[in-house]
Simulated assay, not measured.
Amino acid sequence: MRVAVIAGSISAGIRIAKEIEHIPGVDVSVVLCNVGMRSPLLRWSRELLLALGSLKWGTFTAKLCSYVRRGRVFILRRPLEDPTSIQYLRSLQFDVGLHAANVIYREATISAFRMGILNAHIGILPKYRGRSVAQWSILQGDPTGVTVFFIDSGIDTGGRIVLREFIPSKGCNDVEALRNRLFSCADRLYRQALEALGRPEFQFERNNISAGKRYYVMSKMLTGVVNEILSN
C-alpha cells in the first residue's frame, strides 16, 4: 500500500511518516503542499531554522535526510487544487493520503489517491460534523474522541469510517488542553487505521450523516462555559 502524508509542514509530515513506516506492506512518503499566502520555501526554511534550536534537531534532520535520500519527499510548488499538482499526484500512484495540512480538498485531489484521503477528525462521527466539535460534545454532555474516515468534498460527510476511539476529557482543564489531547492521538490512530485496512476481514462503518448534524465555530461565551465544565 503506497501511502502519502499530505503535510503543510515538514515536521508534521516526518512525524506521521515515522509513526507508520514500520507497518508491513506500507510504503510511506511525504508530500509537502503549498498552503497559505506565504512562500512555501520561506515557510519551510523558517521551520528548519526553528528546529535547529530544539533538542530534537539531530533526530529530526536524520529522519528527514533519510526520506530525501530514498526519494520519499515530494514538493508541490503550486496549490494543492492546481491542475499541475493534481496531475503530479496522479503520476505518483498513491493508494491512500493522510491529511496533515490546513487545506480543504476538492474532489479532483481526493480522486488522485486510489482509495482516497483519510482524516483524523476530533469528533465522534456521524453525530458531530464540522467545527468546534470537541467543545460542542462537552457542552451537550457527550463523550469526546477521534474518528478516522475517508473524506469527500463535503464537511465530514465521507461515507467510509475506518475507526472511532473515545478519548476522555478527564484531566483537561480547558478547551486548548482537550484539543491538544485529541490532536496528539492522530498519528497513532492513522497507524491503527492503516493496519485495519490491511486486514482481509476489514469492513467499513457507514457514516450515516442523518444521525448527526453539522456544527459551527463556538462563540467565546459558550467556550467559556465549556472551560468551566472542564475545570470542575
Rank of each mutant, 00 (worst) to 15 (best):
S11M: 07
I16E: 04
I20T: 08
I20H: 01
E21L: 08
H22Q: 11
P24H: 06
P24K: 06
V28P: 10
V30S: 07
L32E: 00
L32K: 00
C33I: 12
N34K: 08
V35P: 08
P40M: 05
R43D: 14
R46H: 10
L49H: 07
A51G: 11
L52T: 10
G53L: 10
S54L: 12
S54I: 09
L55T: 15
L55E: 14
C65H: 11
C65N: 13
S66C: 09
S66I: 02
Y67F: 15
R70D: 14
V73C: 03
V73F: 04
F74L: 06
I75T: 13
L76W: 00
R77T: 14
D82Q: 06
P83F: 05
P83V: 01
R90M: 07
L92W: 02
Q93T: 12
A100D: 08
A100I: 03
I104D: 03
Y105A: 04
R106T: 15
R114F: 09
M115T: 09
N119D: 05
N119M: 06
H121Y: 06
I124Q: 11
K127W: 04
K127N: 10
Y128S: 05
R129T: 05
R129H: 02
A134K: 05
I138N: 04
L139C: 07
Q140R: 11
V146D: 06
F149H: 15
D156F: 04
G159V: 14
R160F: 07
R160Q: 12
L163P: 15
S169D: 13
G171Y: 03
N173A: 10
D174L: 04
E176D: 13
R179K: 10
R179S: 13
C185M: 13
A186T: 13
A193K: 04
L197K: 06
G198R: 07
E205C: 06
I209A: 06
M218W: 01
M221N: 08
L222C: 08
T223M: 11
T223C: 10
V225I: 15
V225H: 06
N227T: 10
E228N: 10
L230F: 06
